[in-house]
Design a protein around this nucleic acid. Sequence first.
DNA 1: CGGCACGAGTAATGCTGCTTTGTCAATTTC
DNA 2: GAAATTGACAAAGCAGCATTACTCGTGCCG
Lengths: 294, 294
Amino acid sequence: MEKLNLNSLRVFATAARHGNFQRAAEMLHISNGAVSQRIKQLEADLGVVLFDRKPRGVALTEKGRTYYSAVQEALSILAVATSDLGQSSRQIRLHIGASSAAKWLMPRMSAFNARFPEISLETEIHDTMLERNLGRNEIALWPARAPVHNSAHHVQCLCELQLVAVCSPDFLRPDWPVDTQALLAFPLLQDAHRRWERLVERTGYDGGHSILNFGRSALALDAAIQSHGVAIAPTFMIEADVRARRLVEIWRNPDPSGEYFFLSWPKQYAHENPLRQTVTWILSEFGIDTAADT
Amino acid sequence: MEKLNLNSLRVFATAARHGNFQRAAEMLHISNGAVSQRIKQLEADLGVVLFDRKPRGVALTEKGRTYYSAVQEALSILAVATSDLGQSSRQIRLHIGASSAAKWLMPRMSAFNARFPEISLETEIHDTMLERNLGRNEIALWPARAPVHNSAHHVQCLCELQLVAVCSPDFLRPDWPVDTQALLAFPLLQDAHRRWERLVERTGYDGGHSILNFGRSALALDAAIQSHGVAIAPTFMIEADVRARRLVEIWRNPDPSGEYFFLSWPKQYAHENPLRQTVTWILSEFGIDTAADT
DNA sequence: CGGCACGAGTAATGCTGCTTTGTCAATTTC
DNA sequence: GAAATTGACAAAGCAGCATTACTCGTGCCG
């Protein structure tokens, strides 16, 4: 331990989490060779084989698994402490996906600032869900099939993701509203979730259909605003654009999506004020009342 | 955090613990310059000043203090997990000082092996008390003025350190036993605790006296065995040599030393068998019965 | 008040480890 | 079953960390 390379442990944890050295290398912004070397060195130092090398990726050995859970816990403590360090108590850090930030948060920012001028909200955009625990004055908003429960956090479901199709008012034809079949004939704008593709598969529709892919939901929606076609997105993301008449809803998915939008915040600091106010505000924006505490 | 050098955190923790970069460098077996650079880099990365530079050493700033406690906790988790990794459940690791190992443990090793042939005892010698928590199958023996309580450990006082003066039987003169004054006239063998020196000061004795210093108690005792003079040591260290007639006790310090010998072991694994057996054995060697559990 | 010891900081040079590039084996796809 | 893909691993050049050998400011002691 005295001479153990701690940076290797971060590499180990990342590789263990993804079960794949290459993916780990990407996450850490280093090369795959570096990961391979680090793990090899670490295993040599510990005198223990941590991974079984499989044809596709790697899997933790029994010892690797027990070690990983400890390493993960330690790194989480460090990450939280490091994140807390620079924070003033008036600063709230909000972890959120790019599209939710653009399409849900941004339209509400000025209202938030007007209501809580003393709180400075720092939004941090993530591609993947935050792996570590939340620190003081941190909040996370994320979509998922089921809540990731964790004894350190409160988790609150904000709404189910109900999918709707939207397009620009300029894009409207006289024959609206359309049925599902007619809908699929238009240029379809989708994001990495490939919701149109899956819908096409499910309905078994096989007329010609053109699909345009975008990296993020927000881009697909912007394309719809510019009359390039019909985008599909959860209701909370289009609300502001619909109210501003940049988009109109033309179809609503009758099936439940099975996905939900969650809010989580650290239990330990739940009573402290800038955090509690921000949580309460987000809940109220989703029509959830927390009348009990003032 | 993503790009934070974790090795720097170990340097930080060590420096924080000792309040001194040079001492930290020694502990880590690196140069003082390296410590200076690491801390500087770490502070730059975090954007936070962790230490106040004092004319003699350094002191943690307010933020440094809160950060240190988290880093310390994380490193302790890693140290314990790492130490547990290679361990088989039949292996007990015993952390102990060099002299206690040589003069208390070694004479009892064969008896222990005869009694518990299935337990393999691995003794690890330390100059300073172990900073981290104990892991699975780890036990620590250490002298101190007061028990260092810790919610993760059981701590049991084994005995008070009672100081006695010993010499070789060959060294004996007809006029034994002697009084304190006469004692101090002989060549005095002492270790880093400088017990003779302090005794001379306390008694105010000012006849000529010659003192030989040894780095460890065990060396002073070996010198006494070879008739070089009179050594001073706690009873538990000389017991075996006295029984073997290599040493005789010629004086006993009437004052209480205020120091005690402690045993500690992890609560979490206290019920597991090789550990429990070893703890019970050590206690019984000090005449402490744990009749309650079998 | 002068010397000395302590301890942090700095600059030039050498070694660990990261990057690049390529190989090889296993697996999927057509 | 040939081609493409995936993913681990290996060898040679390059960057960052450690070492060495200093400087400099501060406090202690005679």
